[in-house]
Design a protein around this nucleic acid. Structure first.
Length: 179
DNA sequence: GGTGTGATCGTA
DNA sequence: ACGATCACACCA
């Protein structure tokens, strides 16, 4: 359960960035038509088939990066990942504002998978990085997950492409959720 | 608050 | 040809 865990990054200039994860989506593999891994492993999705706890980063719409945490698949040889969709700023808000000039208010800094990557400086060079060892980490600082996480269908999927699975999970009422 | 549209390019 | 999106314009 990633909800309410802390995403932490130390930028090159030593600034600590931290944000509390408030919205995620689960993606599976061969049984999930909405997943990049649906049609098996490709160069792009290789990391998704690898060890859990690593970062799967992909490029989409010709301009955006999005980041997933690789998870343990239901069956060996299959794939699973959790897309980081939104987070609440905790530390390093100044740097986040510099990287997200278009954000009108602070709750827009991390409210969306590509926005989150922009604020944290996550790009393709981070693909495959180990979240337990690298400059990007996910930390449990003792804040419990919401007792009853809210759920919905996943966002941005075409009809019939797994869009009916209720695999979006979020902290109910959090102001930093994606649109 | 909501809806609609263009941007921009790697992937299959 | 299309996408696990965003920003902006416009309407309410």
């Amino acid at each position: 359960m990633l909800l309410n865990k802390l995403l932490v990054a130390s930028s090159p200039d030593g600034v600590r960035l931290a944000a509390r994860i408030v919205e995620v989506e689960a993606y599976r593999g061969s049984d999930d038509a909405g997943s990049h891994a649906y049609r098996g492993m490709t160069p792009r999705t290789e990391v998704m088939f690898g060890p859990p706890g690593h970062l799967y980063v992909y490029f989409t719409y010709g301009m955006h990066w999005c980041a997933n945490v690789v998870a343990a698949p239901g069956r060996a040889g299959d794939a699973a990942a959790v897309l980081l969709r939104a987070a609440a700023p905790v530390d390093g808000i100044e740097l986040m504002r510099e990287r997200r000039v278009k954000a009108r208010r602070d709750r827009d800094l991390l409210a969306g998978p590509a926005r989150l990557c922009q604020a944290f400086g996550i790009t393709g060079v981070d693909n495959g990085s180990d979240l337990g060892r690298g400059p990007l980490r996910i930390v449990d600082d003792g804040v419990a997950p919401p007792p009853t996480p809210a759920t919905s269908t996943r966002i941005g999927l075409a009809a019939g492409r797994g869009d009916d699975h209720p695999w979006r999970f979020f902290v109910p009422g959090d102001p930093n959720l994606s649109r």
